[in-house]
Amino acid sequence: MNIQELRSGDQVYVIYRNPHAQTVAQIQEATIAEHPDHPGRLSLLLFEEYYPLSDEYAMYSSYQEAEKMYKQYFDLPVDGDLF
């Protein structure tokens, strides 16, 4: 996902690792929003916290795309794959 194309109000899906249990990850919906302390600067609004936009986040435009990449990252079968 190209972060330069994101606009305030866009919904994205993030593969988020639990900071307290690094082996736990989930797909979480987030919003692109203007940072309240930095007018004009877009941020990732996740769990009521503002994070600077960065290419380092695993952000996707749809849940299905995020789920496919989640399965690939964590070596889980993708729909249609045989065990």
Rank of each mutant, 00 (worst) to 15 (best):
D37C: 10
N18A: 07
L53V: 08
I3D: 07
R41Y: 12
A58D: 09
P19A: 06
P36A: 04
E29N: 06
D79K: 08
E29L: 13
I32H: 01
I27S: 09
Q22D: 13
I32R: 03
P77W: 06
D37F: 11
L53T: 06
P77V: 10
Y57G: 00
P39I: 02
Y51R: 11
Y60R: 05
E67V: 03
T31F: 09
D75S: 12
F47P: 02
T23Y: 15
G9T: 05
Y50A: 01
F47C: 01
Y16N: 10
K71R: 15
Y50K: 03
A30H: 02
D75V: 09
E65F: 05
L76C: 06
S43P: 06
Q72G: 04
E67A: 15
R41W: 12
Y51F: 14
I3L: 13
E56C: 08
A30F: 00
P77H: 10
E29V: 08
P77Y: 11
L82D: 11
Y63L: 14
P19L: 02
P39T: 03
A25R: 11
G40T: 07
L45E: 03
P52A: 14
S62R: 10
Q22L: 15
S54T: 10
V14D: 04
I27G: 07
A21P: 00
S62H: 09
Y50T: 01
E67C: 10
A33G: 02
A21D: 15
E65D: 15
A30G: 08
I32T: 00
T23F: 15
Q72M: 11
T23V: 13
D79W: 06
Q22R: 14
E67S: 14
P39Y: 02
H20R: 13
E56K: 13
M1T: 13
Q11E: 06
E34S: 09
P52G: 09
D81K: 03
H35T: 07
N2W: 00
Y70P: 03
L42D: 08
M59T: 11
M69K: 12
E5T: 13
E49Q: 11
D55G: 04
E34Y: 06
L46Q: 03
P19K: 05
T31G: 02
Y50N: 07
M69G: 02
Q26N: 13
L6R: 04
V14H: 12
A66R: 04
I15W: 07
D10A: 14
E56W: 07
V24A: 15
Q64V: 12
E34K: 08
M59A: 11
E34N: 07
I3F: 07
L46G: 03
H20W: 12
E34D: 12
Y57E: 02
T31N: 09
